[in-house]
Computed example of a mutant assay.
Amino acid sequence: MTRDGMAEALRSLRPGSGADPAATGARALGVAGVVISVFPVPAADPDAIRAPEPRWWFPELSLRFEELQFTLGEGPGPDATRAGTAVLEPDLDRVRPDRWPALLPAARQLGVDGVCCFPLGLGAVRLGMLTLLCDGRHGLDDRRLADANTLAAALTATLVDGRRPAGRDDGLPWPGDGLHRAVVHQATGMISVQLDIPLAEALVRLRAFAYGSERLVGDVAEDVVARRLRFDDDGSGTHAPVGGEG
């Protein structure tokens, strides 16, 4: 890592820079991957899903891990979102197995050794999340931790200003934009109607089925929206998918 690398990462946040904030951030911090996620603007419906949605990622493994956390509903990202403070676990082998029982074995299978998450926001206002994938052998030393906090602060300022880093308009979420996980939100709404349950519970059902079938929640959501999969309550509090329209 160099000072020039960190300067490049900060310059990538300027409109029109043409740089990728995730790729430049990964190089500057010397980490295996970076994901920058944002929260959509709060919906009027208090039962609406609030989860950070990926805006930039590097490399593809970073996005796969982010989707894994979303599917399972556990991990350093969800914990950092709830607490509003950074969650630093650069070596997942040192994490208690009962802390994230579903995520830890899945992360190892995916090839993720360590994760550090920095919430982006002001006070209680959640704006986004900076997620770093670490190599598991070395934690963030004082210098890299300071640089990660600097990048998180710069991203927060960018979110507050409402600017688009790199001047790109690729359809991915920024405050006020559409949702990257639109299909998940649509499927959740359909399950809510099918089972006559709140949206939050419908998302739990969707995640549970995805986990049980060893699939990402987005893939299952696509089946629901395409009506290849339907959730029906069998009267005992469980659900079973069936094929067909509806």
Rank of each mutant, 00 (worst) to 15 (best):
A240K: 07
G139V: 00
L110T: 05
P78K: 05
P90G: 07
G244F: 00
A152D: 12
F70G: 12
A26L: 12
G121R: 04
E66L: 08
A152F: 12
T158V: 11
D47W: 00
L151V: 14
P42A: 01
P40K: 04
A240Y: 08
D234L: 07
A124G: 10
D233P: 08
C116E: 08
E67Y: 06
A106T: 09
H185V: 15
S213Q: 15
V184S: 12
R164D: 09
L132M: 03
G75C: 04
I197G: 05
T71Q: 06
G189V: 04
A226F: 03
A26F: 06
R3P: 08
L122K: 09
F209C: 06
L159C: 05
A28I: 02
E89C: 09
A102V: 14
P54A: 11
S17T: 12
L63N: 14
R143N: 09
G139Y: 01
D142M: 00
P78G: 07
R126Y: 07
R126L: 02
A240H: 15
I36V: 15
R215M: 14
A202C: 03
H138F: 11
P52Q: 02
E89P: 06
V35S: 08
V220A: 01
G167L: 00
R3S: 00
D45I: 04
C116H: 06
T131L: 01
D20G: 00
A210M: 03
R99I: 01
V220T: 06
L199H: 15
L203A: 09
W100R: 03
D79S: 04
F58A: 12
T71E: 11
L151F: 15
V38H: 04
A208P: 06
G111A: 02
A240G: 12
V242F: 00
P101Y: 12
P21E: 14
L130H: 11
L195G: 07
R163F: 12
G33N: 02
P173R: 04
A107M: 06
F209T: 13
G128C: 01
D113N: 11
T2M: 01
D47Q: 06
L172R: 13
Q69M: 03
A44C: 04
R94I: 04
G171L: 02
I36Q: 05
L103R: 02
R94G: 04
D219F: 02
V193Y: 10
I191F: 00
V225Y: 01
L140F: 13
Q186N: 05
L203I: 06
F118S: 09
H180C: 11
W56T: 07
V125M: 13
L13S: 07
G178M: 09
A226E: 15
R137M: 07
G111I: 05
D196A: 04
